[in-house]
Simulated scan of single mutants.
Amino acid sequence: MEKRKQDKLASMGKRCKDETPPFFKKLRTAGLVLAAIGTSVVAAPIALPAIAVTIGGYVLLGGTVITAVSQTAVGEMDCEEKEKVK
């Protein structure tokens, strides 16, 4: 793997471990709730109309994306401080 790709992968790991700002913590929680609702609709033990299952799939996808993006968000000041250290 190229050095540049390794650096990006290491950077992503560090971002996921850093402190998440309060707004993105709330957004992450909302994304988890949406993902749970979507999963419940898609995996329902009863027969649901196709449109309900389709909407549930989109809600699941949206919740997953919101959660992933919110988890990698870090404060602007944190990024600037780390750049000065390097």
Rank of each mutant, 00 (worst) to 15 (best):
K14D: 10
T39P: 04
D7A: 08
L34N: 02
G56L: 07
V74R: 04
K8W: 06
L9E: 05
I46G: 11
L32N: 09
T39A: 12
T29S: 15
L32V: 06
R28N: 12
A73N: 12
G56K: 05
A50I: 08
M77L: 14
I37L: 12
A35Q: 06
I46Q: 13
G57A: 13
D7H: 07
K3L: 06
A73S: 14
A52V: 05
A43G: 02
D78K: 15
K26S: 11
G56M: 05
I66E: 05
A35E: 03
P22V: 04
V41I: 14
V41K: 04
L48R: 06
I46N: 13
A36R: 12
E76L: 07
A73G: 09
K82E: 15
F23R: 15
A44D: 08
L27N: 00
Y58G: 14
G75V: 00
K14G: 01
Q6N: 13
G31L: 05
L34W: 00
K84F: 02
E2C: 10
R28T: 08
G57I: 06
L32F: 08
E80A: 14
L60F: 01
R28M: 12
E76F: 00
P21F: 01
K14R: 15
R4L: 08
K8T: 12
D78L: 15
P49W: 07
S70Y: 02
T54I: 13
F24T: 08
C79H: 09
M77R: 14
D7C: 03
I51H: 06
T20C: 09
E81L: 10
F23Q: 15
V53P: 09
G13R: 12
F24K: 11
E83D: 08
G62F: 00
T20V: 06
P45H: 11
G75T: 07
L9R: 09
G57D: 05
G62M: 00
V42Y: 02
L32C: 11
K14M: 10
K3I: 02
I46Y: 11
S40R: 06
P22E: 11
G31V: 06
E2Y: 01
G62R: 01
S70V: 07
E76P: 10
E80R: 15
V85Y: 07
L48K: 04
G63S: 03
V69R: 08
G62D: 01
V74C: 07
P49V: 04
T20N: 09
C16Q: 14
L60R: 00
A10N: 14
R15F: 01
R15H: 04
S11Y: 00
T20M: 12
C79N: 09
G13I: 01
S70L: 09
R15W: 04
C79A: 13
A36I: 06
V74L: 08
G62E: 03
V41D: 04
A36L: 13
Q6V: 10
R4Q: 07
E81D: 11
A47K: 05
G63P: 02
L27C: 10
K86D: 14
M77H: 09
K3V: 03
M12V: 13
C16E: 14
E76N: 11
K84L: 09
I66H: 00
K86E: 11
K17Y: 00
K82I: 11
K82M: 15
E2H: 08
E81W: 09
A50R: 10
E81N: 13
T67P: 00
L27I: 02
